[in-house]
C-alpha cells in the first residue's frame, strides 16, 4: 500500500513546467495562490488574468479559466469579467512594470471603485521579461539596463510605493505587503493571500497583496544573494505589513 500523499501539485496548477529562472520567486507565489485557491474554491469558481511581463504565461500554469491581458490592463479586464460573472472569484497577477507603470490608472481606479477582485502584485523592482530595464519600483542607486549609472531621483525619478498610495483610498478592503525571502515570510504571505481571496468571497471588495520578489538573472545576483537583497535592501524601502484593512 502506497504511503498517503502529504504534498503534491495543487489542483489549481497545471502540470506545465514553470519557465521561470532559477532563484526567481514567481514559482513560490504561483504555488501559494494555487494552494489558497484549492483550499477555498472549486476550479470552476475562479477566473484569473495574466499580465504582460515574466508572468505572461501564467495562463499556462493556473488550472482554471484564464485571460491574458494587454500590458497593465489586467484590472480593467478583471473588472469586465467580474461585472459579467459576479459569482466568480476573479484575480490578476501582475508585476511592477505592468501594474505600477503602464497600468497605474487601471490599478488606482479599480481600487477606488472597490472592484471586488483580488490583485497579486509582484514587486521585484525590475522589468524581467524585456531584459532588466528600470521599473517604477527600482531602488535609488540600482543599476539597470536603462539606468546604467544607477537610478537617481534627479535623472530617473523616485520609486513608487504602490501599497501606501492605494491605502489612502476608500475602495480597498485589504492592502498588504509581504515577502517570500524566507520560510516565515512565505507562510505569512500565504495567510494574507488567503485573506485577500476570502475578502472577495465575502463581497468586501478590492484587495491587493504586494509581494516583494527576486530577479536574480537581471539583478546579476545568485539566488541566495537575491534573497538577501530583498531582506537587506528592499524591505527597508518597502516595509512589510498590512497597510489597510476594512
Amino acid at each position: 500500500m502506497a504511503a498517503p500523499a502529504i504534498y503534491g501539485r495543487p489542483k489549481f496548477l497545471t502540470d506545465a513546467p514553470f519557465h521561470y529562472c532559477p532563484g526567481c520567486t514567481h514559482g513560490i507565489v504561483h504555488r501559494l495562490i494555487a494552494e489558497v485557491l484549492g483550499e477555498k474554491f472549486e476550479q470552476d469558481e475562479v477566473i484569473g488574468v495574466a499580465p504582460v511581463g515574466c508572468a505572461v504565461f501564467a495562463y499556462n500554469y493556473f488550472n482554471c479559466d484564464m485571460f491574458e491581458a494587454a500590458h497593465g490592463r489586467a484590472p480593467a479586464v478583471a473588472t469586465g469579467i467580474k461585472r459579467a460573472q459576479p459569482d466568480k472569484i476573479v484575480f490578476t497577477y501582475q508585476g511592477d512594470g505592468d501594474l505600477a507603470s503602464i497600468g497605474m490608472a487601471e490599478t488606482v481606479h479599480a481600487a477606488a471603485r472597490g472592484e471586488n477582485i483580488t490583485i497579486i502584485f509582484i514587486n521585484n523592482g525590475i522589468y524581467g521579461m524585456t531584459g532588466g530595464q528600470m521599473a517604477p519600483t527600482t531602488l535609488i542607486g540600482e543599476k539597470t539596463s536603462t539606468s546604467p549609472f544607477g537610478r537617481t531621483a534627479a535623472a530617473n525619478g523616485n520609486p513608487i510605493h504602490v501599497s501606501e498610495m492605494l491605502a489612502t483610498l476608500n475602495g480597498p478592503s485589504l492592502i498588504a505587503r509581504v515577502s517570500v525571502h524566507d520560510v516565515k515570510n512565505v507562510l505569512n504571505a500565504k495567510k494574507l493571500i488567503a485573506k485577500a481571496f476570502q475578502n472577495q468571497a465575502d463581497g468586501k471588495g478590492f484587495s491587493l497583496i504586494e509581494v516583494l520578489s527576486t530577479c536574480p538573472t537581471n539583478w546579476g545576483k545568485s539566488p541566495l544573494e537575491a534573497l538577501q537583497f530583498v531582506s537587506e535592501r528592499m524591505i527597508p524601502e518597502y516595509p512589510l505589513g498590512t497597510l489597510k484593512e476594512v
Partner: peptide
C-alpha cells in the same frame, strides 16, 4: 446590466475584453 464609466478609453475597451471573454 452593468455600466462602468471607465477611467479612460483604454480601460473601457479592456473592460469590454473582459466581459466579452465571458
Amino acid at each position: 446590466g452593468q455600466f462602468v464609466q471607465a477611467e479612460s478609453e483604454v480601460a473601457a475597451i479592456n473592460m469590454v475584453y473582459g466581459a466579452a471573454g465571458t
